[in-house]
Design a binder for these strands. Structure first.
Lengths: 234, 234
DNA sequence: CGGTGCGTTGACATTTCTCAACTGTTGTGG
DNA sequence: CCACAACAGTTGAGAAATGTCAACGCACCG
C-alpha cells in the first residue's frame, strides 16, 4: 500500500510531528502525494477546496490575479510549509492560485473530507491547525511591516537581513529564494530599481552578488539602511 | 454576580455565538470587561499574554514600534472583533501594542489560563478559534494586496471602496475609521499626499469630503483608479 | 485667549518608475 | 553542435510620482 509514503510525509510536517500514530494514519488515508514539474498548477483561485497542502520537496508559489490581470505573489513555500488550510477550514474556496515553481516538486494533499471529519473530532488535530495558522499570521504581519516601510532600500535591506544564512556566517551568505524579477514584485518595486540598488551596494562594498547568491559584507550598514528611511552607504 | 455582563458580552462575539451554554459560562468565569478611555493601554509589545481580547464598544488600535521608533499600525478594531488570539495560543508574548482610541471603549479579556484549559479539552472551542484566526488571515492578505499596489491613488481608492457604507447608498457614504494622518500611515503614504489626492478628486467631482465623512459620488471612476495603476479623473 | 495638533497648501528635492536599448544565459530545433 | 529565440538582468536618460520642509488656518481644550 502506497500510504507509507504519504504517512512518512505527514510525519515530517512541523505541525503534525506531535500527533499520535493513529491520527496520522487516518489522515494519511485521505491524503496523496503529487509530483509536479515547474509551472504545474496545484489549485486555482475560486475553486472549491479538495484539501490543503504541504510542500515536501521543491517550491510552490501562491499568488492572486487581481481584476485587472496583475499578478500578486502572496508567498513562496518550501519543504515543510503548508498552505490553503484556511481555504478548507473556513473559506470554502481557494482564495489564490498555487503552482509548483521547480521541477521535481513534491506536495502532499490532505483531503478535505477526511481532514474535516478528524478535525471536528480530535482536539489535538485542531490544536495543530491552530499552530499552523498562527505561523501564517506571523509571517503575514512581517510581510506587512516590510511593505509599510516607505523606501525601497529599506525594504530590500530588511528582506535580505531576514533571509536564512546559507553556509558561512562571517561573510554572511544568503540565497534569494526567487528570481530578482519576482523579488522586485514581492517588495513592490520595479525590477530596475532592485538591480540598481544591488549595484550601488556592491560598488560601495556592502554586498557582493553572484546570481542569486549574495554575500552581506557589511551588515551594520545594511541594518542602518533598513532602520532609517533608506540611505547611502559610506 | 457580575459574570452576567461578561457572559452576555461573549455571546455576542461572532466566533463564540454558536458555542454551548456551559462552555460560554466557563469562559466567562475567566474573563473580565475593561472600560477604557482614549489612549489607555490594553497590552504592551513583548509582555507575556494574560489573555486575548474582543472589542465590545469603541475602538482599539493595534500597532508595533520598530527598532528606530516609527509606529506601524497593524489594525483598527471595532465592536465584535477579537485580537491577540495568536499571542495566547502560540507566541507566548504580545507581538504588538494595543490601546483604546475612543473614550468609553469596552473590551472583554478572555483570561489565558481558563481559555487554554478549555481550548485543549473542547474541540468546539478550538473550531471557533480556527474560524477567528482564518478571518485574521483573510484581512491580512487583503492588507498585503492593498500595499503591493504601487501607486498611492490606487491604494487610497481601494481602501475607500472597501469601507462599509454608512447610511444611503446612491451617493455612497462612508466614514473613515481613523484620522487622516493615521490613514496615511496605514496606506504607507505621506499625509500631504493623502490630502492632495482627496482634494483632486473633490475638484473633479469624484468624491465629496466633510471631515471624516466622504461621499463617493462616482464609484466607477474610483474603481478605474483602483484597478489601473492609479490615474486622473478628468 | 494662547497653546497644541491635525489638516491643508505651496515650493522644492528626491526617489522611483517608465521606456528603450543592450547583454548574457538558457533551451530548442535544425 | 550551432544558431536563434526567449527571457532575466542590467544600464541609461528623462518623466512622473511622492516625500520633505515650511507656513498657515482651524478646531479643540485648558
Amino acid at each position: 500500500m502506497p500510504d507509507t509514503q504519504v504517512r512518512a510525509a505527514l510525519e515530517k510536517l512541523p505541525h503534525f510531528r506531535n500527533l499520535p500514530r493513529e491520527l496520522l494514519d487516518a489522515l494519511a488515508a485521505g491524503s496523496r502525494v503529487l509530483e509536479l514539474r515547474a509551472g504545474e498548477t496545484i489549485f486555482t483561485q475560486g475553486t472549491e477546496p479538495t484539501g490543503f497542502f504541504a510542500v515536501l520537496a521543491g517550491a510552490v508559489r501562491v499568488y492572486r490575479i487581481s481584476p485587472d490581470g496583475r499578478e500578486q505573489v502572496l508567498h513562496h513555500l518550501r519543504a515543510g510549509q503548508s498552505f490553503a488550510e484556511a481555504a478548507v477550514l473556513s473559506f470554502g474556496r481557494y482564495p489564490a492560485h498555487a503552482i509548483a515553481t521547480e521541477d521535481d516538486s513534491r506536495v502532499v494533499e490532505i483531503g478535505a473530507a477526511t481532514f474535516l471529519k478528524l478535525f471536528r473530532e480530535d482536539p489535538r488535530l485542531s490544536a495543530a491547525m491552530v499552530g499552523s495558522l498562527c505561523m501564517w499570521l506571523l509571517s503575514l504581519v512581517e510581510r506587512i511591516e516590510e511593505l509599510q516601510v516607505a523606501s525601497a532600500p529599506s525594504r530590500l535591506a530588511r528582506y535580505l537581513l531576514r533571509l536564512p544564512a546559507t553556509g558561512a556566517k562571517d561573510p554572511l551568505m544568503v540565497e534569494l529564494p526567487m528570481a530578482k524579477k519576482e523579488l522586485a514584485a514581492h517588495l513592490a518595486i520595479a525590477p530596475e530599481t532592485l538591480s540598481r540598488l544591488l549595484r550601488r551596494w556592491q560598488d560601495s562594498g556592502v554586498v557582493e552578488t553572484r546570481g542569486r547568491h549574495l554575500a552581506l559584507l557589511d551588515s551594520r550598514v545594511l541594518i542602518a539602511i533598513a532602520d532609517r528611511e533608506g540611505e547611502e552607504a559610506s
